[in-house]
């Protein structure tokens, strides 16, 4: 079973440096929890890549193609001579294409965000009760910066020491649930 050790910090720099020392001590990649995005996370914990842009691109292309086909195919299936216009009228259909490109781009971006950020998670399904693998620190939503590391029983002591040296204001066992 994985134990989670959570250290609370008052400022982002100490939290970052603690995260860095944990990583360099081969305890795995720690998770940072913070009320604001921390600058410089990627320098310490390595570059992050997300799949969101692929979702957006796919959504936009899908929306554009389906938008044009929707207009064109419905016009062909049920031909209404309208205002002496050709059956597939490009200028107006391009506007439909444009709007649906954006609509599906947005929808897929959201889906991409949920998938890549793994939301909604266990915290959501059980109304923010503790998810075993997702330690949760309420103070991190206000003004504390938390570093959480999941490790085996043997490493708990080491992790706590590293966090304390880095200047943690409090250390808590993330496995048992938020206080």
């Amino acid at each position: 079973m994985t134990h989670f050790v959570v250290g609370l910090f008052g400022d982002p720099e100490s939290a970052l440096s603690a995260a860095g020392s944990i990583q360099s001590a081969d305890l795995g990649t720690p998770e940072l929890m913070s009320p604001v995005p921390i600058e410089g996370v990627e320098e310490v914990l390595g570059e992050k890549r997300s799949v969101i842009k692929r979702f957006s691109l796919f959504g936009a292309i899908f929306g554009g193609v389906s938008g044009f086909l929707l207009a064109a195919i419905t016009a062909v299936l049920y031909a209404h001579p309208v205002g002496g216009r050709p059956i597939i009228t490009f200028p107006p259909y391009l506007i439909i294409t444009y709007e649906l490109t954006i609509l599906f781009g947005i929808i897929f971006t959201v889906i991409g965000f949920f998938v890549s950020a793994r939301l909604p998670n266990g915290l959501w399904t059980s109304f923010w009760k503790q998810d075993e693998n997702r330690p949760y620190v309420p103070e991190a939503a206000v003004d504390k910066f938390a570093v959480s590391i999941g490790c085996g029983v043997d490493d708990v002591q080491r992790a706590e020491t590293i966090l304390r040296i880095a200047g943690a204001e409090a250390i808590r066992d993330g496995t048992e649930g938020a206080s």
Binding site: V76, L77, A79, G84, P86, I87
Partner: peptide, 18 residues
């Protein structure tokens, strides 16, 4: 088939004039 038929029948400019 319905799509292709509709397209064949109406694609010529002036389908609305005959």
């Amino acid at each position: 088939d319905r799509i292709t038929e509709g397209w064949r029948k109406n694609r010529k400019p002036g389908y609305y004039e005959n």
